[in-house]
């Protein structure tokens, strides 16, 4: 029983971070109606940036978060401006090719800059654990989970309580009507992409203390983000939280009780099951 709880809770903690990746993808889809196939590469970029900051300047990943958030928003906004905005009205396959292309450029730059070998960081807290009622949690994973919660609450506050957050939601729900309220929807899209990229990069930073990183890890996360958003309903930001937790738990249980070699496959199986049984996602249609 303790083992089950242990495995289950590890799944929840990991799933929280997956949710963050998925929320970014979902926000971008909700506001811009495009699927960002480079999403996982921005997770990888967040990981390597934190790795670099740690190795060259000794900056702890958790302390680097403010920098990662600001840098992520700026980079995302720039990428949107330069690569996505010009093709936003084009047919769907154009944006697919464009984001896939952006992802390829990022992963190859990472390969070029950091080499193909797996890397990780070792900190004073890497092996620390937290014990609650007989169940042991990884210390860094617990901290990452708590920060994830704070980031999600912060995002919720921005989307519902600030002028610019409301403007992004209005753009998602009715673009013409948003323009008619005086909202520059091109800027709203740029910002949504910036925030989405920042969320991906933050997830990367949060996972760095508990994962090995290789330049091609982005593809894995794009897939996970996709699974999370489809589980939660495309464009449904809150649903992505449920989707992330389900993915985390499925992977964790599958790896512990069936085979750890197929960890990533269990999430995909859950994904296919949901697609077959509830194509609109577990939590219904677009809710940004």
């Amino acid at each position: 029983m303790t083992t089950f709880l242990q495995v289950f809770m590890t799944g929840i903690l990991t799933g929280g971070v997956y949710a963050l990746v998925g929320i970014g993808l979902s926000l971008i889809f909700g506001v811009m109606r495009i699927v960002n196939f480079a999403h996982g590469e921005f997770v990888a970029l967040g990981m390597y940036t934190s790795l670099l900051l740690f190795q060259s300047m000794g900056i702890d990943p958790y302390l680097a978060l403010p920098l990662i958030i600001v840098g992520g928003i700026l980079l995302g906004a720039l990428v949107e401006r330069v690569f996505i905005a010009p093709i936003i009205a084009a047919p769907e396959h154009v944006s697919i090719l464009m984001t896939v292309g952006v992802g390829l450029v990022i992963s190859n730059l990472l390969l070029f800059g950091f080499g193909a070998h797996p890397q990780s960081i070792f900190t004073w807290y890497s092996t620390k654990t937290v014990r609650v009622g007989g169940v042991t949690f990884s210390g860094p994973l617990s901290v990452s989970f708590l920060i994830t919660l704070a980031v999600i609450l912060g995002l919720y506050w921005v989307l519902t309580r600030t002028e610019i957050g409301r403007a992004m939601r209005a753009t998602a729900q009715n673009r013409d009507a948003a323009e008619l309220q005086g909202i520059n929807t091109a800027v709203a899209r740029m910002l949504a992409f910036g925030i989405g990229v920042a969320l991906a990069a933050v997830s990367g930073t949060l996972l760095l203390p508990v994962l090995y990183v290789i330049p091609t890890i982005g593809g894995v996360f794009t897939l996970k983000a996709f699974v999370v958003t489809v589980l939660g309903g495309m464009g449904n930001v809150l649903g992505a939280i449920g989707g992330g937790l389900i993915l985390g738990v499925t992977e964790s249980l599958g790896a512990a009780y069936i085979s750890s070699g197929y960890r990533d496959a269990f999430g995909l199986i859950a994904f296919l099951a949901v697609l077959l049984l509830r194509p609109a996602g577990l939590f219904g249609k677009s809710r940004v």
Binding site: E163, A170, Q173, A177, A178, Q181, G182, I183
Partner: peptide, 16 residues
Amino acid sequence: LFPLMTVEEHLLLGSF
């Protein structure tokens, strides 16, 4: 209208 937004949010957006 913005289908998922409240009356209050519409009026706030009207004065964006």
